[in-house]
């Protein structure tokens, strides 16, 4: 009797589940293997990096190059500067970009489409072209070589994406709920603050990941605008590209870790950008 039960659907389900798991593992490996390799190389001794073939298992652990790298003048100061600049850019870009995005999403006005296109023009100019005149300007007003100067540049660079992403986030908040809030006596500002913003917040947080990572990665502008108060990439990148391989791995490792931590913190919100169902 029991032998006659048709097990094909269960088998198929099992197979599908297996395939799904296999796909997940493959995607994870695709992301994790480079991180594994760079960590391995960063934590290997210098001599072992010159061996051939390279061992893929941690057989020759050493923190020599990593401590050498971290012991260089100004690494921790630069890390602090990078965090200041990242956070400052995030705040300033949100203060300016979110209202602009809201306006784009809710109001129709003359020249809206050209305006959206025009926004992207700041990104069309190479950073070198932007930063040399900016350096001159900042020298004249005496904020050259400060984190403020870099924050201003990074904000200008981040604004287009902040505005466009926040506009699409606000579009996904139904206008009905805002109107309902107005009906129940909220002022326009109150409706925005009490109803729209909380609903849009996860999406805005996701937009901030772009801003932060952009600011974290930007090198050229930051190195032209500063001298003794550099951000981390500006401080180490040119130095690393001239250094022996072992140091490049150590530096790469040190540069990757903080942004992985930031993304891990924001991960919860990132999935929200594509709809809460994924979670």
């Amino acid at each position: 009797m029991s032998t006659k039960v048709d097990t094909t659907p269960i088998a198929r389900q099992k197979r599908n589940r297996f395939l799904l798991q296999a796909a997940c593992i493959a995607v994870s490996l695709f992301m994790l293997i480079p991180i594994y390799l760079i960590s391995l190389a960063a934590l290997s001794s210098r001599a072992s990096l010159n061996e051939f073939p390279l061992s893929l298992l941690p057989t020759n652990l050493s923190v020599e190059t990593l401590t050498g790298f971290l012991g260089a003048t100004g690494i921790f100061g630069a890390l602090g500067n990078s965090l200041i600049v990242g956070a400052g850019t995030l705040i300033l870009a949100a203060l300016i970009g979110v209202p602009a995005g809201y306006a784009l999403a809710r109001f129709s006005f003359r020249g809206k489409d050209p305006y959206q296109l025009f926004l992207l023009f700041t990104r069309a100019l190479p950073i070198v072209v932007l930063s040399v005149p900016l350096a001159r300007l900042f020298l004249t007003v005496d904020i050259y070589d400060t984190t403020y100067a870099v924050i201003l540049l990074h904000t200008a660079l981040a604004l287009p994406t902040t505005i466009l992403i926040s506009a699409s986030v606000f579009l996904s908040v139904p206008i009905d709920v805002e109107e309902a809030a107005r009906l129940f006596g909220c002022s326009p500002l109150g409706a925005f603050g009490r109803v729209v913003l909380p609903m849009a917040l996860p999406g805005l947080a996701a937009a901030s990941i772009f801003t932060f990572v952009m600011s974290w990665n930007e090198v050229l502008g930051a190195s032209i605008l500063t001298l003794d108060h550099r951000t981390l990439p500006a401080q180490v990148l040119s130095s690393l590209s001239d250094s022996p391989l072992a140091y490049r791995f150590a530096g790469g490792f040190a540069l990757v870790i903080p942004s992985i931590i930031f993304i891990a913190l924001m991960r919860r919100y990132l999935t929200n950008m594509w709809g809460s169902t994924i979670r």
Binding site: A78, G80, I84, A87, I91, D145, T146, T147
Partner: peptide, 19 residues
């Protein structure tokens, strides 16, 4: 939390030993 380091160090930390 975000603005504390921001206000504390104003123009940023020294990275070349010029401090």
């Amino acid at each position: 939390a975000m603005s504390a380091p921001f206000l504390a160090s104003c123009a940023g930390f020294d990275t070349s030993g010029a401090a």
